[in-house]
Write a protein that binds this DNA or RNA. Sequence first.
DNA 1: ATGAGCCCCTAACACCGTTAGGGGCTGGTT
DNA 2: AACCAGCCCCTAACGGTGTTAGGGGCTCAT
Lengths: 261, 261
Amino acid sequence: MPENDTTTTPGTGTAGPGSRSTGPGTGSTGPERPADTPGSTAAAPALTREALAQAALRVLERDGLAGLSMRKVAAEVGVKAASLYWHVRNKEELLDLLNDAIMASAEPPPREGDWREQLRGYCWRHRSLLRDNRDAAKVVAGRLAPGPHLFGLLEDQLDRLREAGFSDAHAALTTYLLSSFVQGFVLQEQSPLSAAEADGASRLEVVSAVRDRFRALPVETFPNLVDLAADLTEPDLDVRFEFCVERILDGLATLLPPERR
Amino acid sequence: MPENDTTTTPGTGTAGPGSRSTGPGTGSTGPERPADTPGSTAAAPALTREALAQAALRVLERDGLAGLSMRKVAAEVGVKAASLYWHVRNKEELLDLLNDAIMASAEPPPREGDWREQLRGYCWRHRSLLRDNRDAAKVVAGRLAPGPHLFGLLEDQLDRLREAGFSDAHAALTTYLLSSFVQGFVLQEQSPLSAAEADGASRLEVVSAVRDRFRALPVETFPNLVDLAADLTEPDLDVRFEFCVERILDGLATLLPPERR
DNA sequence: ATGAGCCCCTAACACCGTTAGGGGCTGGTT
DNA sequence: AACCAGCCCCTAACGGTGTTAGGGGCTCAT
């Protein structure tokens, strides 16, 4: 009942009218539309999957992931909820589109400096991408489904890694290391520290409250937590991120022969 | 044992009748229950927050995070949904409890070998913890809210890091690096590669399908993706994880004076 | 006996994802 | 001209969700 379903799979082609058959664009990279509305009322906006993705992006920005519903996205494009199912198999697929729409605004760092500088740029940009779009980290979280835009980034990153001297296998593995870390980090840095967020509670207030809680722990069982309370609650998350990224870069450097650094 | 609780931040005590006022245990560490049901029908299970967490854990295992509803958790403990709100402010708080319940089954690696070996153990154990409990990674994802069990782990990890020779600040930052990475990695490794999962589609089938898709990309625009298709789709995720962890450990090693390695 | 606090209940609200079925509107074929 | 096929949207409804209001017992200390 709840999920299951999947009844569809490809089969079940009872050819019944109601069943979704092809849907517009299923292709990954190639353009799908036959042409574009040859004549007649040329201005008709023509609801596309792209338009859906943009609408979803707007709703996400306004209401957050929890507030993103089919009905709202439909309203955003001026139709009713059920109509979306002509363009999209289900909400999950809409989220895939949304995921790609988020990735669309990413662009690789400039091609200057050594490999460290460039990879560093990738990490920091990836982080800001996930932070700038509301709830982007959560959207991306359980979603590998590579949209075309991510392909471009991946391609570019691999290119630089190989050029830096990394082996094929190492280059490929490195992309996973970087993306896993950045994703995990942003997820953590954006999650509310305590229930006392979302209300007023300025960031700094919450942080120092957490720090006090650390300090208030029983010293005999949690000596380190008490002692390192200040370090654990370093309020500048950029410092944290920088530390982590530099450590990862150091680790990657050991893969290269010393002369390439 | 650790009855616990965290939570609440006391305020809001308007003392009005209908409003949830205190809830059972609000104390931080001390035991709350006055005693335990002195006489009479001694066997009454007495619905506790702990029991709720266990019930939620069972529902999670059975139906996954998407299928975890207040009503089901309530049914699991033999009450109706509305009754849960006496013990818990809302679903979010229940998820915090669930989070801690998941963490409860974690235990630190043995204290043998050098610091690398021990940190490695932490990473691999953390990963299996998140993989063994269904949807655990997603539950933990947007949830810092440190349950008492996580405190224990953190304390232990910090202790080993300092003993290894890391400075206070470095030790603290390292815990974030490790947990961010592991969390991000498991999130990625568990997310379905394509829509063609969840159905039949053995893992290997899907992997090789994805590999073929990489290879089928236009070579002139995605030369690296095409070329590294095999490396990018390495099916053994342990290999990936190992690479990432070792790189991070290498990076951490550079913080130590050479003689401590 | 009274009241306070605990703990659960029934009903209901508004909203969710999703499906069934239908109805126009278009363009091509017979 | 008539027809059909496909596109694209609609209304209505199903079963489910989190959450609140209000009430009712049941146990205790006064």
